[in-house]
Design a protein around this nucleic acid. Structure first.
Length: 581
RNA sequence: GCACCUGUAGCUCAGCUGGAUAGAGCGCUGCCCUCCGAAGGCAGAGGCCCAAGGUUCGAAUCCUUGCAGGUGCGCCA
C-alpha cells in the first residue's frame, strides 16, 4: 500500500472522468502527473501538479483545470480538502482516518510494509566488492561492500529478483605474484631466510598461508623450480585469500550468492566466444592507439593491438582487448564475464566499482551494449573514496607505516552495524569522511545512535506496557481504536510512516540506498519529537497508566514507526537495537 | 590535453525522474532543564544553490560555456 500512488491513481481516474465529460480533450499523456508531499507542510499532505502539466497539451488554463479537478478529488472519503493554490497546484489534505489506516496496514504487514512490486521480478545481477584475491579487504572495499549489499537488498525489497555476485580476479599476473609471495613464506616456514623484493607482497597476512602450505605439502616444493610448484601454490593461495575475504565479508554481514572465477573463463573458449560475438558485429580490428594528449608516457611506442570499437557506443577511444604480444588485456575476460552474466538470463546488470575505476565505465557499458544489442542495461555505480579520521585528524593509510586499515580493523573497532550505517549516510558518488571517534559517539549528534535510540525507546515502551499487563502484539495493536490519535505530532509521525513505501520506490529507482538512511533519520526525528512532547504533556506519552485502550492506540503508532525502522535498517543491513547500552 | 565525479549556510552534507518562501546536523546566540520520560528540549540568526548564458508557466535540479577540487587515461587488474 502506497498512499501516494493510490492518490495519484485517484487523480488519474478523475482526469479520465473529465475527459469522458469533455472537460479535457482525449489523448492526453498523464505520465508527468505526480502526487508528492509538498515541501511546506502548511500546503497540506499532498500536492498534485496535474493541472499545470496538462494545461498546455489540453489548451486550457491551469487554474481552470484545477478548479474542475479539485472538487472531484474532495469527493473521495479519504480526502478532507482539495484546494487550488499558486500557479495551479491542488493541495490535498487527508482525513485523519487515512493515516490511521496506514498504521493498521503497517502493523499487519510488519517488516514487509513498504515492499513494492515495482521491479516486477526483473532479474538483476549486482556485482560488488570483486577485490583481487591477493590480500585482506581494506576500507575502500568496505564501502563498496556495504553499498552493493544495501543496493541489492533495496532492489529485492522493491520487487526485483536479485543475485549478489563477486568476480574473483584470479586469472591475471597478480595471482602469480601472490603465489611467489606465499612461496617465500613457505620457505620461511621451513627455516629459510627470505627477501621480499619489489613485485612481491610482503604483508604479514601471508605468513599463516605459508605455514599452512608447509603443513600440507611438507618440503615437497623446497628448492624446486617455479614450474614445479607455481600452479599448485597459486591455487592454494587464492583459496586461502578467498577464505579470508569471505570471512571479512561475513564479519560485515555480507553474503554473496555467487563467486565467479575469472580463471574459469580461460581455456574453455568462453573468452573467444564473447569476442566472436563482437567480431561478428564488425567491432574488432587491428589498430594502433594514439598516446593520450598532454601525458605521453616516456617509453611510448606505437604498437598494433586488437581493438574494440567502443567509440561506436559512446566511448572516447577504442579499447585494446589484446596486448601487442597477442595475450589478452584484462578487458577481454571482463567482456566474457559480462557476456556470461547476460547468457545466464539477467535482464539487468549493475556493477559497483571504486571511484578509481571510473575510467572503465564507458568501455564496459559499450561492451555490454554491443553484446546485447542494447537489450540488457548495465548500470555502473561508483563509490567515492573513504577518508579516515581519528580524533578529528586525518588518518593516512600507509602499508609501509603499518597503518593500513583493513575492513577487519574497522569492524573490530566500531562494529558491523555502525560501519554499515555510517557508510550509507552518504551518496555513493560523494566522498565519505569516516571518523572512528564520532561514529561511536553515544549522542543524538550521531545518526546511527539517533535511529537506534528511537527503536530502542519504543521497545522499552513495549516492555513496560507488557509488564503493566497491556497486550502489545501487533494484531491487538492493529485492532485498537486509533481515532484518538489526533494530535498534530502524532499525525506528523503517521504521515512520515506513510511515506515509507514511496521512499523505497524512489530509492530503488535511483539506486540510492542512502535515501533510506536519511529517511530513517527523519522518521526517528518525528518519533523523538513526539516523545519529547510527552515530557511536558503526559497525555502524549505512549503508555497511559491504567488506560489500556488509549495506550494501545498510542503504542500502535509507536510500534508502526519501529516496524518501518526495522524494515529500513534491514535493507541497510543494520540490526535494530532493542535497548541502548 | 581528454573523460568521469563533485561544487548548496562558517563546517559536514540532504534536496523526490523540473514545482510554491532552499532543508538537516554541527557550530553560533538566547531561553528552559533541582523530582516526575533531559545519554536533553525550544526558539533565533545565518544562502548570489561556483559563474555566465539558454530551455519554459516554473531551474539548485535539464542544456552550453567557463572556473575550482577529486579520480583516471595502451603492453596493471
Amino acid at each position: 500500500m502506497n498512499l501516494f500512488s493510490e492518490t495519484r491513481g485517484l487523480v488519474v481516474d478523475s482526469l479520465a472522468a473529465m475527459q469522458a465529460e469533455g472537460a479535457l480533450p482525449a489523448g492526453l499523456d498523464f505520465a508527468n502527473v505526480t502526487v508528492e508531499p509538498p515541501r511546506d507542510p502548511a500546503h497540506g499532505d499532498m500536492a498534485t501538479n496535474a493541472a499545470m502539466v496538462l494545461a498546455k497539451p489540453a489548451g486550457a488554463k491551469p487554474r481552470d483545470i484545477a478548479a474542475t479537478l479539485a472538487p472531484m478529488l474532495a469527493a473521495d472519503a479519504r480526502i478532507e480538502s482539495a484546494d487550488v493554490a499558486g500557479p495551479g497546484f491542488i493541495n490535498l489534505r487527508l482525513a485523519a482516518s487515512a493515516w490511521h489506516e496506514v498504521l493498521r496496514t503497517a502493523l499487519a504487514a510488519g517488516d514487509d510494509f513498504g515492499r513494492s512490486a515495482m521491479g516486477q521480478g526483473t532479474r538483476v545481477n549486482v556485482e560488488y566488492v570483486s577485490a583481487n584475491p591477493t590480500g585482506p579487504l581494506h576500507v575502500g572495499h568496505t564501502r563498496g561492500a556495504v553499498f552493493g549489499d544495501a543496493l541489492a537488498s533495496l532492489l529485492d525489497f522493491a520487487g526485483y529478483a536479485v543475485t549478489r555476485e563477486y568476480y574473483i580476479n584470479d586469472g591475471g599476473a597478480q595471482v602469480d605474484v601472490l603465489a611467489r609471495s606465499v612461496y617465500l613464506r613457505y620457505l620461511e616456514a621451513h627455516g629459510q631466510a627470505v627477501a621480499f623484493e619489489d613485485g612481491t607482497y610482503p604483508g604479514d597476512y601471508l605468513i599463516g598461508v605459508g605455514e599452512a602450505l608447509a603443513a600440507q605439502v611438507g618440503d615437497a616444493y623446497v628448492d624446486q623450480p617455479e614450474a614445479v610448484w607455481l600452479a599448485e601454490v597459486r591455487a592454494f593461495a587464492i583459496n586461502a585469500m578467498m577464505g579470508m575475504i569471505r570471512d571479512d565479508l561475513a564479519a560485515l554481514g555480507v553474503e554473496m550468492d555467487t563467486f565467479f572465477s575469472e580463471k574459469s573463463l580461460y581455456g574453455t573458449g568462453r573468452i573467444e566466444e564473447a569476442l566472436d560475438a563482437l567480431e561478428a558485429r564488425g567491432l574488432l580490428y587491428k589498430g594502433v592507439l594514439e598516446p593520450p594528449k598532454g601525458k605521453t608516457p616516456e617509453d611510448w611506442e606505437p604498437r598494433e593491438q586488437t581493438l574494440f570499437r567502443s567509440t561506436a557506443f559512446g566511448d572516447d577511444v577504442d579499447r585494446p582487448i589484446a596486448k601487442s604480444d597477442g595475450s589478452w588485456t584484462y578487458f577481454a575476460p571482463d567482456i566474457a564475464y559480462h557476456y556470461d552474466k547476460v547468457s545466464r538470463g539477467f535482464d539487468m546488470l549493475i556493477d559497483v566499482f571504486g571511484a578509481d575505476h571510473g575510467g572503465y565505465v564507458k568501455r564496459m557499458k559499450a561492451a555490454v551494449a554491443a553484446l546485447t544489442d542494447g537489450q540488457v542495461p548495465l548500470e555502473i555505480k561508483l563509490c567515492q573514496l573513504v577518508k579516515l579520521y581519528k580524533n578529528g585528524e586525518p588518518f593516512k593509510m600507509s602499508k609501509r607505516a603499518g597503518t593500513f586499515v583493513t575492513l577487519r580493523d574497522v569492524v573490530d573497532q566500531v562494529g558491523a552495524d555502525v560501519t554499515r550505517f555510517v557508510m550509507l549516510t552518504r551518496k555513493n558518488d560523494a566522498p565519505l569522511d569516516f571518523d572512528f571517534d564520532k561514529v561511536l559517539e553515544q549522542s543524538k549528534d550521531n545518526p546511527v545512535f539517533y535511529v537506534q535510540y528511537a527503536h530502542a525507546r519504543v521497545c522499552s515502551v513495549l516492555r513496560k506496557a507488557q509488564a503493566a499487563g497491556i497486550a502489545v502484539d501487533d494484531a491487538t495493536l492493529a485492532g485498537a481504536d486509533l481515532s484518538i490519535l489526533t494530535h498534530e505530532a502524532e499525525l506528523a509521525l503517521a504521515r512520515k510512516i506513510a511515506e515509507w513505501p514511496r521512499q523505497v520506490e524512489i530509492a530503488a529507482r535511483m539506486g540510492e540506498p542512502h535515501r533510506v538512511a536519511f529517511y530513517l533519520y527523519d522518521l526517528a526525528s518525528e518519533l523523538h519529537a513526539l516523545w519529547n512532547l510527552g515530557h511536558d504533556n503526559p497525555g502524549l506519552r505512549f503508555l497511559q497508566e491504567g488506560d489500556a485502550a488509549t495506550s494501545a492506540a498510542k503504542i500502535a503508532l509507536a510500534r508502526a514507526a519501529t516496524v518501518v525502522i526495522s524494515a529500513g535498517l534491514g535493507i541497510l543491513g543494520v540490526t535494530p537495537a532493542q535497548e541502548m547500552r
